[in-house]
Amino acid sequence: MKVKEVAELAGISVRTLHHYDEIGLLSPAATTDAGYRIYSEQDLETLQQILFFRELGFPLKKIKEILHNPSFDREEALEMQHRMLLEKQKQLEKKIRTIEKTIQEVKGERTMTQKEKFEGFDFSHNPYEEEARRRWGDQTVDEANKKTGQFTEADKNRLSDIYRNLTAARHLTPDSKEAQDAIHEWYVFLQRFGHYTPEMFKNLGQMYVMDERFTKNIDQFGDGLAQFMADAMAVYANQRTNEN
C-alpha cells in the first residue's frame, strides 16, 4: 500500500507516517523508483502496535525501543495493551458517571458529595513524563517515579483536597492569602515526589498554560484553573526567591 492509502486506512496524516520513517520508528518495506513509499502487511501490523502504544500515552522514543527489542513479542504486547486499555476504559467510565452526576446536580436533581465530584480523576500517573525528562533531566524524573511508586491512599486523598481548595480559590487574585495558602500546599505536595526549586515550580506553572494537554487536564476541575495556578505559582516562586 502507498503512504496515502495507509494514512487513510489508519486515520492518521501522511506527515505522521513520514515522521515515523524519518525517526526510524516505521520505515516502509520498499520504495518505488519514483520515490513512493510502499508498506507491507508486516508494516501495517507494526503501525497498529505503534497506534495502540500511542493511545496509551507511550512516547515515540519508548515505542521505538520496545518494537526494536529482539525479545519483542507481538502477542504478549497485545495482551498487555488489552489490559491497559480496559483499565483506561474503567477510568473513562468513572469520569462519565461523574459528569452525568454533575449535570444532574446543576439541574437541581441531586446533591453530590465533595468526594463524588472528583471520582475518576487520578493524578498519580503522569502522562507527560517525556516532556518532564526533556525539561528537567532523567535523574529528577526517575527519582520522582520512584517516590510515586509509594503513592498511598492518603496521598490521593490529600491531592483531591488540594485541587478542591485550588478550584474554590480560582476566582480570587493569585496573590491573595487564600490563593497563596492553597498553592503552598501544592508546592509542599510536589516535594513528596521530587525536589522542585521555586524556579522549577514557576516553570511548571507556565507549562500548565503553554501546553494545551496540561490546560485541558487541569481545567476539568474548573474553568480557568490552569491559568490561575500558573499565576499563583509565579507569585509564590517570586516571593520565595525574594525572601532568599
Rank of each mutant, 00 (worst) to 15 (best):
L17Y: 00
H82M: 14
M1N: 09
A168P: 02
G120V: 03
E116V: 08
S40A: 07
M229F: 08
V6Q: 00
D211W: 06
E79A: 13
I50H: 01
R240N: 08
K146E: 13
E130N: 11
I99E: 12
E199V: 10
V141G: 01
H18W: 01
E93P: 03
G205M: 01
W136Q: 08
I23M: 07
L159N: 04
N244P: 08
G120W: 02
V188A: 13
K147I: 03
E65P: 07
T113N: 10
G57A: 12
I99T: 15
D161Q: 14
Y187W: 05
Y36E: 05
F52H: 05
F123N: 03
T215I: 01
A226Q: 03
S124I: 14
E45S: 12
H18G: 00
K64M: 07
R192I: 07
S13V: 00
L166S: 01
I183M: 11
E153H: 07
T148R: 14
K88T: 06
D21Q: 05
E75K: 12
A232G: 10
D181I: 06
K147S: 04
I99F: 14
M112E: 05
Q42V: 10
G120F: 02
V141P: 00
E178A: 15
F72I: 10
F221V: 11
E243L: 12
H195G: 03
P70S: 07
L172A: 11
A34P: 02
I63G: 00
H68C: 06
Q191E: 13
M200L: 13
G149T: 04
L225V: 12
L51A: 02
F52I: 05
T102R: 13
F189H: 11
T102Q: 14
E243S: 15
P174D: 08
A226F: 03
D122N: 15
L47V: 02
E75N: 09
K2C: 04
W186Y: 14
A132K: 10
E87S: 14
Q220N: 11
G205S: 03
G194N: 09
G57T: 11
N217Q: 12
L67Q: 00
R240C: 05
D43Q: 06
L56V: 08
L17I: 00
D43Y: 04
L9S: 09
H125M: 13
F189L: 09
I96Q: 13
L17G: 00
L86H: 10
L51Q: 02
V106M: 15
H18T: 00
E109D: 14
M80F: 10
T102N: 07
N242W: 10
D138M: 11
K2D: 11
E87V: 09
N145W: 06
L56S: 05
E55R: 15
A10P: 06
G11W: 03
F58H: 04
A10N: 06
V6C: 02
R54P: 03
A169M: 07
A168L: 12
L166Q: 01
G137W: 09
E185S: 08
L204E: 02
H125Q: 14
S40R: 04
Q49Y: 07
G57Y: 14
A169P: 02
F72D: 05
G57R: 13
L204I: 04
K147H: 08
Q89W: 12
Y20T: 00
N238T: 12
E131F: 11
H195L: 12
